Simulated scan of single mutants.
Amino acid sequence: MNLKINTLLSDLNEQLNFIDIEIDDTINRCEKAIDIIIVSIQKLKILFLKEKFKNQEQEIDFFKNIKPKFTSKFIYYNIIYKIETKKPYGGERIVKKYLNNELQKLKTYFDNNLDFYKYYRTGNNYLDFKYFVRGKFDIKLTIDSFFFEVDHNFSTSHDFKVAKILAHDLVQVYLENKLIEINNKSVKEKSQHNHNAKLTWTAPKVALIELLYALQSEKVFNNGSTDLKEIAEYLENIFNVDLGQYRRTFLEIRVRKTERTKFLNTLKETLEKRMNNSDEPI
Rank of each mutant, 00 (worst) to 15 (best):
F110H: 12
V95D: 07
K164Y: 01
N65Y: 14
V150S: 04
I139N: 00
K178V: 02
K164F: 00
I79A: 09
R134V: 10
N100R: 15
I80Y: 03
D151P: 10
Y98E: 13
K67N: 06
K136P: 01
A167H: 03
N101G: 11
N100T: 14
V133E: 05
L166T: 03
I139W: 13
L103W: 11
T108Y: 02
Y76H: 08
N124D: 09
Y131V: 11
V150C: 14
I165H: 07
N177T: 10
K136A: 13
F129Y: 14
S157E: 05
V95Q: 01
V95M: 09
K140V: 10
S155D: 12
D169C: 05
Y120K: 07
T122M: 09
D144N: 15
E92N: 08
L114K: 09
T142H: 11
N100C: 11
K164M: 02
T108E: 12
F62R: 02
E84K: 13
N100H: 14
V95Y: 00
N125T: 15
R121P: 01
L166G: 10
K107C: 03
K73F: 04
T122P: 12
D115L: 13
A167T: 04
K82S: 07
Q58V: 01
K64W: 05
T122N: 13
K136M: 13
L175M: 04
K164E: 01
Y76Q: 11
G90Y: 04
V162I: 12
L106M: 14
K67F: 09
N78H: 09
F146Q: 13
K73E: 10
K67C: 07
K118F: 03
S157M: 15
V162C: 05
S72E: 08
H168Y: 15
E84D: 04
K161E: 11
V95P: 03
Y117Q: 06
I66N: 01
K118L: 03
S72V: 06
G91Q: 11
T85Y: 00
L175A: 02
L127N: 02
I60A: 06
N65H: 13
F154N: 06
Q58R: 10
